[in-house]
Design a protein around this nucleic acid. Structure first.
Length: 357
RNA sequence: CCAGGGGUAGCCAAGUGGUUUAAGGCCGCAGUCUGUAAAACUGCCAUUCGUUGGUUCGAAUCCAACCCCCUGGACCA
């Protein structure tokens, strides 16, 4: 694969790359650049975790990238996830690794790093404080939405540490590419600024699209608030399809999902097809009733988009096709958790925990 | 530590001794209408008011202690 081809692979799933030139240069200079993807372990895995990320990870690995999967256990602790019980959080982290395995992520080809491990050194905290010294309190407050918090929430002092820690992590792990969701761009931008200031290695930011929740777009005061309110969130069961949902549950959720006719913008059902089904299955098959046009199959998201916007595909038929395709993708994961004893025990333990926002 | 203010459903919020078996709004759920959803309309959604004890025939409402949050101050600089 040429560097140009590698950039193309990244572009296939990234909503934004900062910057593309830097990425190309990186691929030209380095055979195995280091990228990271991280998350707070809490709750139950939804499809944007199990399916969407699995797709992205597969693509990253194709380009020869060395992927570090960062389990931000203490970050979850800061945000009071899982009753702020670090033991529980870590068990949830182990459960999430099982979800990735079940989703076909070759966990032996990625490096798993726990926040609690890299935090266990003076060097780390030196780094955090260095970042903090170069980060105004205002910027810290502004970037706190990276933790998914709105201004209404009461912040604790612990949460003020969050941005500095997140930024420090990037340098501690010697990251070339920060591969995170659009909701994390603030921290990545701070990292790039700090890198310039301190002459540290400047990471490239690759942000993937945030999958819409089932209810579609919820308008908030500003674009960023809207993004956060509208995304599929594992802590909001009414917005999410989970990797453990039964066929019936998937059908019900898709059936009641927001899905305006002739409109693909802000349409979650279309998004699931575009971002999950086409990349995973290569096509979308819809077994329509005869009177509605009969069987139809789309090869690309663009083809589907055109047909839907022109009214050649009824929303209900789109839902049917998406629902069946999702079932195909989720089924093996569900079954993995039924058959594999370790995974099943972890899952049962995790659903036993009190899930907090 | 001191002085005020406050803690009512997932969220916002009214209610200050008996027509309150806790108003209203948001969210959510169910139904009607659409070949989906949304919108609209209809219905449902806190046996309980931070905790514990007390006063009273009767308490979310009064009293006491305790816990937590907010504002200001004191202390420290």
């Amino acid at each position: 694969m040429t560097p140009q081809e590698k950039v193309k692979v990244i572009k296939s799933f990234a909503q934004e790359i900062i910057s593309e030139e830097e990425l190309l240069k990186l691929f030209e200079e380095k055979e195995h650049p280091v990228a990271y993807d991280g998350f707070e372990p809490s709750g139950i895995a939804p499809i944007h975790f199990g399916l969407l990320r699995a797709i992205n990870v597969k693509k990253l690995l194709e380009t020869g990238i060395h992927l570090k999967l960062y389990l931000a256990d203490y970050f979850a602790y800061i945000n009071n996830k899982m009753d702020a019980d670090i033991k529980k959080i870590q068990r949830v982290g182990e459960y999430f690794i099982e979800v990735w395995k079940a989703s076909g992520v070759e966990t032996n080809k990625i490096e798993i790093i726990w926040a609690s491990d890299i935090m266990d050194s003076l060097e780390y905290w030196d780094r955090v404080l260095t970042v903090a010294r170069h980060l105004s309190l205002n910027r810290t407050f502004k970037s706190l939405t990276i933790a998914g918090r709105s201004q209404k929430d009461i912040l604790s002092t612990a949460q003020l540490f969050y941005p500095s820690m997140q930024v420090a992590d990037i340098f501690e792990m010697d990251i070339d590419i920060c591969q995170l969701g659009m909701d994390q761009r603030r921290a990545n931008m701070i990292a790039r600024e700090i890198a310039d200031k301190l002459n540290w290695k400047k990471p490239i930011a690759v942000h993937h699209h945030m999958l819409l929740g089932l209810k579609g777009i919820k308008q908030m005061e500003d674009a960023e608030q809207t993004l956060i309110a509208s995304k599929m969130s594992k802590s909001d069961p009414t917005s999410s399809i989970y990797m453990h949902d039964t066929k019936k549950e998937i059908e019900n959720k898709i059936r009641t999902a927001f899905c305006p006719p002739n409109q693909t913008q802000g349409n979650p059902v279309f998004e699931y097809a575009k971002y999950i089904i086409f990349p995973s299955l290569g096509n979308l098959k819809i077994y329509r009733a005869k009177e509605h046009g009969g069987y139809i199959e789309y090869q690309t998201a663009n083809e589907l988009k055109k047909a839907y916007e022109m009214g050649n595909l009824h929303p209900n038929d789109l839902k049917m096709g998406v629902s069946e395709s999702l079932e195909m993708l989720i089924k093996p994961v569900r079954e993995y958790f039924e058959k594999d004893k370790k995974a099943r025990n972890l899952y049962e333990e995790v659903i036993g925990y009190n899930i907090t926002r």
